[in-house]
Design a binder for these strands. Structure first.
Lengths: 144, 144
DNA sequence: GTATGTGCAAATCATTTGCATTCTC
DNA sequence: GAGAATGCAAATGATTTGCACATAC
């Protein structure tokens, strides 16, 4: 299996774009973190590692990563988007508590299968899916 | 089955809030439109009907509608949130084309069942779910 | 060498908020 | 009558963009 960087290099070449050290740093950092991130968190992480990459570059890189299949939007929280890397991972779904905002992840093979079969029914080429289930977690449902 | 307005009135009473004609207009308009909407679209619709309701009121009403179970966030498009009313409807899922942005809706009972069963596994009280599948629609996949 | 990418700071745009006024209960 | 809700306009905060300089191919 190709590395994320390799996938991105190929994508960039195919599109006639250019690869840069900044973009590769962004990719490495994204794949070094366990899972979700937002732009500001990523920016801080990069700064802490002494990488001088601007927010603008991060914002400009993200659509490329999505288009190349490395990344997907996960959910909006506190008014801004959160992303998750999806290359080389089992997809997971999110279970969100509406009261405390808590997030539980779960892997659900059957969701992925259903997503694919629905896509086929509409003659789509399915590349991803996102599932969010909400309700009240054990702690919060007790408080109601 | 109670009307949306009745559900909201009860919610408001239970929370010790107040009902207002503005809120009821918002609810009527949301349930009069077939399905998805965004704040600006709703605002324009209301204006066209000569209802003088400010954007601020719409923004302040939406969280109440979500909490009362009438509405849910559907997806982010063009940088802003889109909502869908969910009371008295079969839930539907979305199939999105990554190339042209096209949206197909589908009802998928099995998704709802899986959502519920996953929630139970984590001892959540499940109140809703959101599924988005993406890929390339028949027209766009041909162009690649 | 040329087109693309980067960083910065300013601009944009959705959403939120302070405040004076109006309205529900 | 008291606490809530509304409308307006200003504030906020995430994201985008113009531009001058740097860099990949």
């Amino acid at each position: 299996m190709k590395s994320e960087i390799a996938v991105f290099r190929e994508f960039v070449r195919r599109k006639g774009l250019r690869n840069t050290p900044e973009r590769e740093q962004v990719i490495r950092m994204i794949f070094a973190t366990h899972e979700h991130f937002d732009v500001d968190g990523l920016y801080s992480l990069l700064r802490r590692r002494k990488e001088k990459i601007s927010r603008a570059t991060i914002y400009r890189t993200i659509p490329l990563l999505i288009e190349s299949g490395l990344l997907q939007e996960a959910y909006v929280e506190n008014g801004h988007m959160h992303y998750e890397h999806i290359y080389g991972h089992e997809r997971h779904c999110h279970l969100r508590c509406l009261a405390c905002g808590g997030l539980v992840e779960f892997a659900e093979q059957s969701m992925a299968e259903r997503a694919r079969s629905v896509g086929e029914r509409y003659e789509f080429v399915v590349t991803g899916h996102r599932v969010e289930v909400y309700g009240y977690c054990p702690k919060c449902k007790a408080h109601r």
